[in-house]
Nucleic acid binder design. Structure first.
Lengths: 195, 195
DNA sequence: TACTAATCCTAACGTTCGTTAGCAAAGAAA
DNA sequence: TTTCTTTGCTAACGAACGTTAGGATTAGTA
């Protein structure tokens, strides 16, 4: 029964994601993972080919999610760059908060991918960041954004967002849309009151 | 001769820091570390007690550096909160850029500390972040800063800064003071042009 | 009923891990 | 010259690692 297999496989993926997040990929053993699933280590290999396959799936699935969200958020060419950037920020936060554990793995554990997956992953990441750079550069060129160095601004912007999985806990006082809105505001308007 | 011993020990610390940064603490073996130092794995134990001692020293040394910098930056009570915050940001960036590898380890590998070091470390970190929260809250109360939620603002501020070790490479086009200045500007003034 | 696919087990494989014991060389201090 | 400290080696320890082989059980399909 295919759905059952997929369901069990998804269960393994999910448990692995949680463990990779809290203990790190290298420090998580297959026996730990098996114990968390209520099974024996050898049994996992009825469902997966290798430990790294788990990491691979997590990282590349999230990459897809980020791309899909960004493309949708920035697609409307009629809109000025600034609101499109705001929507892209909100999309990024939405993906991050939808699966915090997977996001944390995506952000921190990708270096344990072996070649050529590692290089492929970094290329995707670079392409994604380039999307933000372009958006900010457009906004700066149009006078909508103050960004003397769009590359630097994009770096800082994504930095603020990507730290989120280290502190965000679902069920806290702030809902994901709240967080997205506040982050976008703080990053676009800054902290200091201007005269 | 004590200085020679310390020098060799420091060499081990430094090499360990670089390896822990790029490969992660758990994925770095003592044999790898020894090879990078041109010695055998067993020989390292003439200088250290355990692998974790290396991590412990790295993490807690950096914690001290951050505290010393912050205390100096925020000490001047005569100054308004906003410029003190700016100086604290610049100090944080200075510590990060002075030893990027150690900073990356400090930020990402501390979870491999075992108890009670781990709890002790987290308490230090919390105390440091509280310093920023207080500074931002003071600035907001005095009307110098726009921060409806100082805790949230502090989180985002440190997030932007702490991502730095993932992209900064010494010898790039930007000097550390440049970076500090730009980051402080972007975080305090934001991106969006106001009318 | 017979067959197939899914699921999990036990037992073990070869490898690598952090660490230790015991010994040796080499230079500084006495 | 003797002594001590520093530094490093080889060899090995027990434990844990990812993974595999081969078999058992179960449930759905034909």
């Amino acid at each position: 029964m295919e759905t059952v297999q997929l369901s069990r496989k998804d269960q393994i993926d999910q448990t692995a994601t949680a463990l990779f997040r809290t203990r790190g990929f290298a420090a998580t053993s297959m026996r730990e993972l098996a114990a968390a699933l209520g099974m024996e280590a050898g049994s996992i290999y009825s469902h997966i080919r290798s430990k790294e396959e788990l990491l691979h799936r997590i990282c590349f699935r999230l990459a897809e999610d980020f791309f899909a969200g960004f493309d949708e958020a920035s697609a409307d060419d009629a809109l000025p760059a600034a609101p499109r950037l705001r929507r892209a920020v909100e999309s990024h936060v939405r993906v991050l908060t939808t699966d915090v554990a997977a996001s944390a793995v995506f952000l921190h554990e990708w270096r344990h991918l072996s070649e050529p997956a590692r290089t492929e992953f970094l290329a995707l990441r670079e392409r994604y960041e380039a999307g933000f750079r372009t958006l900010i550069a457009e906004g700066a060129a149009a006078g909508e954004l103050y960004a003397p160095d769009p590359d630097f601004a994009a770096l800082t912007l994504l930095a603020s967002l990507n730290w989120l999985p280290t502190w965000y806990r679902p069920g806290g006082p702030l809902t994901p849309p709240d967080i997205a809105h506040r982050l976008a505001n703080q990053l676009l308007f800054g902290l200091e009151v201007r005269s």
